[in-house]
Amino acid sequence: MPPPPPDVPDVGLTISAAAATLGVTIDTIRYYEKEGIAPAPGRGPDGWRRYDAASLSWLAGVVMLRGTGMSVQEMREYAAAYRNGADEHDRLALLEQHHAAVLERLAEVNRHLAALERKIDAYKKRITTEPPGGATAT
Rank of each mutant, 00 (worst) to 15 (best):
S16C: 05
H98G: 00
R66P: 01
S16R: 14
L65R: 05
D121G: 13
P3D: 12
H112V: 09
M70A: 11
E104L: 12
R76A: 05
Y78R: 03
P4I: 03
T138G: 11
P5R: 02
E108K: 13
V109C: 11
V11K: 12
T129F: 08
E35W: 08
L94Q: 09
D10C: 07
R43T: 06
V62S: 00
E74Q: 15
V102Q: 06
A86S: 13
G47T: 02
M1C: 11
T129R: 14
A54S: 12
S57W: 02
M64V: 10
E35M: 15
G69R: 04
L113M: 12
A81S: 10
T68K: 10
G69Q: 05
G44D: 05
I37T: 00
E117I: 02
I37N: 01
R30I: 07
E74L: 10
G134K: 04
Y123D: 02
L106Y: 09
E77T: 08
T68D: 07
T14H: 07
A40Q: 12
A18K: 01
Y82W: 13
R76G: 02
D10K: 13
K34C: 09
G23N: 03
R76L: 02
M70C: 09
P132F: 07
L116C: 12
P9K: 05
Y32C: 01
E108D: 14
D7Y: 08
A93V: 04
A86L: 05
P131I: 08
P45E: 15
A79M: 03
R91D: 01
A20Q: 14
V11W: 09
N110K: 15
R30C: 05
L106V: 11
P2Y: 06
L94I: 11
L65F: 12
A137S: 11
N84E: 15
A93F: 01
E35S: 11
A60V: 00
E77I: 04
L59P: 00
L106M: 14
L22I: 06
S55R: 06
V24F: 05
A93I: 00
P2C: 05
A122D: 13
V72M: 13
R50Q: 06
Y32E: 04
R118W: 04
L56R: 01
T128F: 07
R105H: 10
A18H: 02
T128L: 13
K119D: 08
K125L: 13
G44Q: 03
M1Q: 10
G36W: 04
P9S: 07
H112W: 11
E74G: 14
A60K: 00
E74R: 15
G12H: 00
G61R: 04
T21M: 04
H112E: 12
L94W: 01
W48M: 11
E108A: 15
G12M: 00
P131N: 10
I127F: 14
I26K: 14
V72E: 07
D27H: 14
P4G: 08
A40T: 12
A80D: 14
M1V: 11
A54R: 13
T28W: 08
P4Y: 01
T129N: 12
N110D: 15
G85Y: 01
S57M: 10
A53K: 03
T136K: 13
P9G: 04
Y82N: 08
H89C: 04
L103V: 11
I37L: 07
S57N: 02
V24D: 06
R76V: 03
A135Y: 09
A17I: 03
E33Y: 08
H99Y: 11
A86E: 02
